[in-house]
């Protein structure tokens, strides 16, 4: 079993984290509200997963002010994009192996 799941990244084991990364892969910059809307999760839930991904520096956080309102937007780092691609490759391999059984 261990050989099959080798390559799956622990950082992406959660649904919400997978979602965050997939959105950031195809969008340059996404703000918190848009992420929340697309993933349909609570503020706290999203924030905790974002900080987990930030800790391993897979995503970058940009904080700025639009007028007087603070606006935080997120983007995928180069390392994060690479890691996510590897993770997807591993999933693909896993599914292909499963199909041969």
């Amino acid at each position: 079993m261990s050989s099959i799941i080798h390559g799956l990244n622990k950082a992406f084991e959660n649904r919400v984290r997978l979602g965050i990364m997939s959105i950031l892969m195809v969008n340059q910059k996404v703000d918190f509200t848009s992420l929340k809307e697309m993933l349909q999760v609570s503020d706290g839930n999203l924030a905790s997963h974002i900080s987990a991904l930030e800790k391993v520096s897979y995503i970058k956080i940009t904080k700025q002010f639009i007028g007087k309102k603070p606006n935080t937007s997120y983007s995928a780092s180069t390392g994060g994009k690479k890691a996510f691609t590897n993770h997807l490759d591993a999933i693909e391999k896993l599914i292909k192996k499963g199909g041969k059984q």
Partner: peptide, 25 residues
């Protein structure tokens, strides 16, 4: 069963990923 659920789960994840990439752009 364990192997199957793992596989099904990953297929589901892939569908979700594709869906999100599509919907967000």
């Amino acid at each position: 069963n364990r192997a199957m659920t793992e596989q099904d789960e990953q297929i589901e994840n892939l569908t979700e990923i594709r869906n999100l990439m599509e919907r967000s752009t």
